[in-house]
Design a binder for these strands. Structure first.
Length: 121
DNA sequence: GCCATGGCTAGTA
DNA sequence: GCCATGGCTAGTA
């Protein structure tokens, strides 16, 4: 799609499709997390983080697609279709811990995608 | 129009 | 805490 960035320059952003998100998310291993914004960036549309959340909320297959491993950019939990308590429980089962509402050692458990992921088209 | 976000600014302590 | 963001859905015509 076409839109203007912060410098009022016209840019092309990739339209994010549900399956793009689910496919990428399947690659996040237990014990690691990513963020809504990181997924948006990796899929070629850095400002689409809100959309990622909406797409995850309709995740048809929570077994194959580990929605619970997606948290907010500040390390806080974010939402979950089955409640945030459930989300936190799953993450703790995978070895993560929390210091007052945020993932402990966030920097260490946060997956980073290769930045040129979006150069393919 | 809705939102499972995020980055920034004001303004408090 | 404000508000731009962007894909989707309900529900109107």
């Amino acid at each position: 799609m076409l839109s203007y960035n912060m410098d009022k320059r016209l840019v092309i952003r990739k339209t994010i499709k549900n399956e793009d998100v689910y496919e990428l998310l399947r690659k996040i291993p237990a014990g690691k997390v990513t963020t809504y914004g990181d997924l948006a960036k990796a899929l070629g549309n850095p400002s689409a983080s809100r959309i990622i959340g909406r797409i995850l909320s309709r995740n048809p297959n929570p077994i194959k697609v580990p929605c619970h491993r997606v948290v907010m950019s500040d390390g806080k939990l974010g939402g979950y279709a089955y409640g945030t308590a459930k989300k936190r429980g799953l993450l703790e089962k995978e070895g993560l811990s929390f210091t007052n509402e945020s993932v402990s050692d966030f920097m260490k458990v946060r997956i980073s995608f290769s930045s040129d992921e979006n150069t393919r088209d």
